[in-house]
Design a protein around this nucleic acid. Structure first.
Length: 262
DNA sequence: ATGGCTGGTAGAACCAGA
């Protein structure tokens, strides 16, 4: 059975009703993992998803900040939520897909402005979050997909200008090393790069502050879909919907979709 | 040209995003 799984940092789900609907009508993924929903669970916009047939929803939201949601038109089994910062922020949901593979939807902390945990506690929290994820991942024994906004662009070709960004949070060596440790802990396969190998440039986020984001193309690849080696063997297609960066009032991130023949 | 924008909240000469 083929299942298509999407991830999208939606940057406030209630502000994006029109483009979420456009995406679901056009692309029809089976499962959509959202990050930065920025809405409490009791005010989540359920109606728009029901109307499109996405009747299975697992939420981990909070008012104003962070928040993830896993939304599906196929039944999901189980739900678990990890707090890798141990500070109550809503940044993770795990579910089990039909067929048994688990799906982990994560919003890694952005990490603030300064790449120094002594002067910027948010940067330390980001590194600690990834380190705790790594400990969890090292003990994981079942086939899995882990995806979402990891807020790290690891490769030189994951940013518009490697030299210009090497001291900028999201592309510093210490973050890249932390993400590499996480990846090695389960031999996670980076599906975007399986289908679009380096050194091809590949971005998933462009700042709102570029007046012509497509022309200046100052992007970064912050959003990722990783999977266990056994799952990577049955990944048959990968799409990034770059046009979504121009839809209506857009998110600054674009959706990506993987097809798995489970 | 790393903030030039955006949305939400509060009623800000603000905050966070990354």
């Amino acid at each position: 059975m083929a299942i298509r799984i999407a991830t999208w940092n939606i940057n406030i789900v209630r502000a994006r009703a029109d483009i979420v609907e456009q995406f679901l009508r056009d692309s029809r993924p089976d499962v959509l993992c959202l990050q930065e929903t920025k809405v409490a669970n009791d005010t989540f916009p359920h109606g728009m998803f029901d109307a499109l047939g996405y009747t299975h929803r697992i939420l981990n939201g909070q008012r104003m900040h962070h928040g993830v949601a896993t939304i599906s038109r196929v039944p999901l089994d189980g739900a678990w939520r990890y707090d890798w910062q141990d500070n109550g922020e809503a940044r993770h949901i795990g579910v089990r897909l039909p067929g048994g593979v688990i799906l982990e939807n994560v919003y890694v902390p952005a990490g603030g402005d300064v790449a120094d945990r002594e002067v910027n506690p948010k940067f330390g929290q980001k590194l600690d979050f990834v380190e705790r994820m790594t400990r969890w991942s090292a003990g994981l024994r079942e086939p899995a997909v882990i995806l979402g906004d990891f807020n790290v662009a690891p490769l030189d070709c994951d940013v518009w200008n490697h030299k210009a960004l090497r001291d900028v949070v999201s592309h510093t060596q210490i973050e890249i090393d932390a993400l590499s440790q996480l990846q090695q802990s389960h031999d996670w396969v980076d599906l975007a790069r399986q289908f679009n190998p380096a050194p091809e440039k590949f971005f998933t986020w462009w700042s709102y502050r570029n007046t012509d984001w497509r022309l200046s193309d100052r992007g970064r690849r912050l959003d990722h879909i990783w999977c266990s080696p056994s799952v990577a063997k049955v990944a048959t297609a990968f799409e990034a919907i770059k046009d979504a960066r121009d839809w209506g009032k857009p998110s600054d991130h674009i959706p990506q979709i993987v097809t798995l023949d489970l």
